[in-house]
Nucleic acid binder design. Structure first.
Lengths: 102, 102
DNA sequence: CGGCAATATAGCCATAGGAGCATATAACCT
DNA sequence: AGGTTATATGCTCCTATGGCTATATTGCCG
């Protein structure tokens, strides 16, 4: 199964997650939102589902997809040790700017 | 140019970054660390460099690669709105566990 | 039951990308 | 200059993947 990182590599998939942040949506809503054919969207949803990033619920003929953020914690955890590094760089930049004509 | 997300999709590249967290390293060190040929490593380093995730410094025949964490801030920013979501889920789980036989 | 709506799956094509081998480049040393 | 070390680049191969069209599936409604 693809890693969460690999799943997030595709911009369309990130966009799907962004849309689902507002609440569950049927496939067709997502098709309208992204400029993609319905099968393409379904394929992305399958990848997201297999990665545990979305869940499905049936509503008559429709399938309502909902966000599952938990796997993103893994990404956040990987990122954690780096956070202090770019924060340090930004602080330094800020200090330089403060010193400039203050 | 590939997005930071796409660059991070490859496990070897994440591993390189993890190694570089400890400080700058010549290519050969990375070759020893990952089980890859030198050209493969150089290729990954090129991708990382073009994404701004590493910098190079010459030291005689060697090239010392150093981490640049700044582009990771973009990933962190994308992640931010999701963070509260999985934290909420984990809190709920914790509460259920606390309630279980307490 | 027949037909429509919503979604999933299959098959196909084109492209990207990661890996390896061979080779170019560059700097050191003698 | 010639050899050796360290790294980059070019080329090729293979696989993975994203997109599309066509079709299967499932459930609704008349």
């Amino acid at each position: 199964m693809a890693s969460t990182f690999a799943v997030l590599a595709d911009p369309h998939r990130r966009e799907i997650l962004d849309v689902l942040r507002a609440g569950e949506r049927p496939v067709n809503d997502l098709v309208d939102w992204l400029a993609l054919t319905q099968p393409a969207v379904s394929k992305h949803l399958r990848v997201l589902r297999e990665a545990g990033l979305v869940e499905v619920r049936r509503d008559a003929q429709r399938r309502l997809y909902r966000l599952r953020a938990e796997p993103l914690a893994e990404v956040d955890a990987w990122l954690a040790p780096y956070r202090r590094m770019w924060e340090r760089s930004l602080d330094a930049l800020e200090e330089r700017l403060d010193g400039m004509d203050g």
